[in-house]
Design a protein around this nucleic acid. Sequence first.
RNA 1: GCGCCAGUAGCUCAGUUGGAUAGAGCAACGGACUUCUAAUCCGUAGGCCGAGGGUUCGAAUCCUUCCUGGCGCGCCA
Length: 553
Amino acid sequence: MKEQLRHAIQAALKECYRTGTLDSGVVPDEIQLEVPKNPDHGDFSTNLAMALAKAERKAPRQIAEVLSVAMQGNPLCDKVEIAGPGFINFRLQATHWYDVLHQIMQQGEQYGRCQVGNGKKIQVEFVSANPTGPLHIGHGRGAVVGDAVAAVLQAAGFEVQREYYVNDAGNQVQTLGNSILLRLRELQGEAIVFPEDGYQAGYIVDLAKQLLAEQVGLANATEAEAVETCARFGVAEVLKWIEADLKAFGIHFDHWYSERSLYDRGMVDQELSKLKEKGLSYEQDNALWLRTTEYGDDKDRVLIKSDGSYTYFASDVAYHMEKFDRGFERVIDVWGADHHGYIPRMKAMLAGLGHAPEDLEVLLIQMVNLLRDGQPFVMGKRSGNFVTLREVINEVGSDACRFFFLMRRCDSQLDFDLELAKQQNSDNPVYYVQYAHARVCSINRNAEESGIPLPRREDVDLSRLELAEELALAKYLARYPETIVGAALNYEPHRVIFYLQELAAQFHSYYNRQRVLVDEAAITQARLYLVNAVRRVLANALKMLGMSTPEQM
RNA sequence: GCGCCAGUAGCUCAGUUGGAUAGAGCAACGGACUUCUAAUCCGUAGGCCGAGGGUUCGAAUCCUUCCUGGCGCGCCA
């Protein structure tokens, strides 16, 4: 609809040039058309006259006058007005808004989906927490945002894969194995000295007990073998926890990618030799370096240390190179904001390989400040005093938790007060949105009990929706698809949350002012049609973001 | 010292990519349940958009210099 109007304006502009009422001949690439904040300013508004003022050397209002004359009588528009410094405001025929309702009812679950992504393959890698302990609240935010970004991209027509990168190689896994082994020996009565940098948390002891119960024979193993066994066991168990936690959140990964497998398959050496061939790496001080400075990094980065071991960066380079080998045109990484210093070297690496900077998009999730009764709560795996994601989900509920994490832009910090979140039960905005959905369902139930049929497209007379607020509701429903596109292209799922809240607010307000089931059958039918379109959009958005759609509350 | 993110109502945050009179939710105050669910609605009050300068028809939004807070700057992960 917006596009139709855009074309009409473009045609009018060309007509003006043809007839000589305007003479600059300038046609902007894209005519800006927006929905004004103030409904008095019409359904759509363009700044075209102001934009042309310079080229035309005329006052904006004068140009607007000429254009609006050319637009008069256009069948799309009910009214064309000039306002303010030179805005041209359009009010569309009501039938266009009625058509939106028909579209929604006809498309059902598909309404809001589109093909702007054009099937482009895109990967979202998120969470990717080290498998050395349970997920905490900060991981939860990344999990929800990553999942929502993926969902919104899917809705916009991208082919999306959700991937979890498992850091099952490297020092932190050694530390895990060592920590478990020490606790195991402790359980067997040995006096041990637990190292400062070991994992102190209680779950390590649990893992040790479990290992003990399973009677894994470590007696004849060397120290290194024992640590290795404990590490493998620990990683496998912790991954089970993580998967279960994510499942409780309704999050499913298409693919779990093992870092260790990169080494086992020789991928790291293979990719590193490609870099060498391209002259992107060099040896110095017995170490192998990547020339990231040539592509904007502060300093070159080490791939292989002088002792022959690989850096974390090395496997990350190989991993990301392979992502593109797997055919993804764009790759999104969701990271904690404390890793932001890592971005320049990753981008530099890709630039060296001839990728555009946008091919890798890193979403930084800012910190979650965990509070309890307003007091900061210290987190850290080693301190052993942290709140797990599972605890929070159990306390607050998955829906509320997801909603809360999605309410803010991911690049601003988030205060999460556990007591507050628990209290929120009835205050939480998620219920506000879900309640709107439940209310429509309730109306439907009442209609059914009274023997009122649900309206069918062929029978319903939408011109009975005469109230300004009814039209406003339809107009807002029309903006759902563009909201998704905006959220997808900008990786900003919070836009959908704000849309939901606004839609629910408009619906609740309408509900309190007007009855749907009234004496006059035709009006009842039209209003039922409208509120069920609202329900449809609420349900589509809630489902897309992984939240439930209760029919009763 | 360098870099990234943020700074908007008492609090938590939006702000359609530069548009018209800057908006919500909490918190405060006052109203609305014999009518489809009051987990709702209606109203009142609340602002130097961190500060200064610049760009233009027009700036919370873009550029610049500061100030404040958070986070990073290893041959750690």
